[in-house]
Amino acid sequence: MPRTDRLFQLMQALRDLPAPATALALALETGVSERTIYRDIDTLRGLGAVIDGEAGFGFTLIEDATLPPLGFVPEEIEALVVGLTEVTQIGDPALAKAAKSALTKLKSRLPSAQAHRLKHAVLTAKRFYKPPTIVIDASALRQAAWEERTIAVDYADAKGKRTVRELDPLTITFLDGTHCLLAYCHLREDYRVFRLDRMEDFTVTDRSFRPRRIPMLREFKARLEAEPPRHIQS
């Protein structure tokens, strides 16, 4: 691994791991030796990162030199906490991890008083009922939507009947307590809403519907606002 990439990875580990992070924990997180961790900590300090701690105790990132300071009004901080905390609870594993990482980055970039407010926000989000389990790779599904690639999906309706659908994926939304894909269905020749937890598998085809995703999504959203769906696609 190039040294620069290793240093960036170490910075992210310092943001993510509970402080103080031991050299052993950092080594396991980054895949290098503890000796390398000590050398890289010294390098990061030389580059301007304020890292408290020492060998045998652990390390805490106090000030992140790679990120400029940010400022938010109190309500913006509360909104960030609520939004990102909600994603950690309802997002797929990749999104939940990204939201948690984003919170740690924000703490590193905020002035100390605002970082304290972020850590101890008055508002937060808590869900006692988790969304239905998703077995497909939601990250790959999002990527297919970004790339505007048609997908073939093994899908089960509410009665358990399975069909293979060819879909143009437009966006993923959290609807009625579950993650849903808004898509154009080639079988029905119309827009439909599909539950991700009813998808067994999908493949990305070599067919592109670029550059129509944004106008298609705009049209579908307008339909949903005019007449909200009474049920998810079956």
Rank of each mutant, 00 (worst) to 15 (best):
C180S: 10
F174R: 07
K161W: 00
L170G: 04
G177H: 12
I172F: 12
G177F: 11
P169L: 09
W146M: 13
C180D: 07
D168K: 11
I172H: 11
I151V: 15
T178H: 06
L175Q: 12
A156S: 10
L175G: 05
D168C: 10
L181T: 08
F174Y: 04
K161T: 03
T173V: 14
G160T: 00
D157A: 03
T171I: 12
L181E: 08
P169H: 10
T163F: 01
G177A: 06
R165E: 02
R165F: 05
W146T: 15
I172V: 14
A156H: 06
V164E: 08
T178V: 11
D157N: 13
L170D: 03
T173R: 13
V153L: 14
T171Q: 12
E166C: 12
F174C: 10
T171K: 13
G177Q: 12
T150V: 15
Y155H: 05
D168F: 10
V164D: 10
G160S: 04
G160D: 01
T150D: 14
T163I: 01
E148M: 05
F174M: 05
G160M: 01
C180T: 10
D154Q: 13
T178W: 07
A156C: 05
A158N: 00
V153R: 05
A156K: 00
V153W: 05
T150N: 12
D154I: 07
D176P: 01
V164K: 11
G160L: 00
R149W: 01
E166W: 09
E147H: 08
A156T: 00
Y155D: 02
T173M: 14
L170T: 02
A152I: 15
I172K: 07
E147C: 04
T150P: 02
D154K: 12
K161N: 07
T171D: 15
W146V: 09
R165N: 04
E166G: 04
L175N: 11
G177T: 06
D154L: 11
R165S: 00
L167D: 04
I151M: 15
V153Y: 10
I172Q: 09
V164I: 05
L175C: 07
F174D: 07
V153C: 14
I172R: 12
I151Y: 15
E148F: 02
V164Q: 13
R165Y: 14
D168M: 11
D176N: 03
C180E: 02
G160V: 03
G160A: 03
T150I: 15
A156L: 06
E148H: 02
E148Q: 13
G160Y: 00
G177V: 08
E148W: 04
L167I: 09
C180M: 06
Y155E: 03
W146A: 14
T171V: 15
E166L: 13
K159M: 02
K161G: 00
P169T: 11
D176R: 14
L175K: 08
T173Q: 13
K161D: 01
E147Y: 01
T150Q: 14
A158Y: 00
Y155F: 15
V153M: 14
E166Q: 09
K159S: 06
L170I: 04
I151W: 13
E147G: 04
E148P: 08
L175I: 09
A152L: 08
D176A: 12
L181D: 07
C180Y: 06
L181W: 11
A152C: 07
D157C: 01
T178C: 08
T163L: 08
F174G: 09
G160F: 02
D154W: 13
V164G: 03
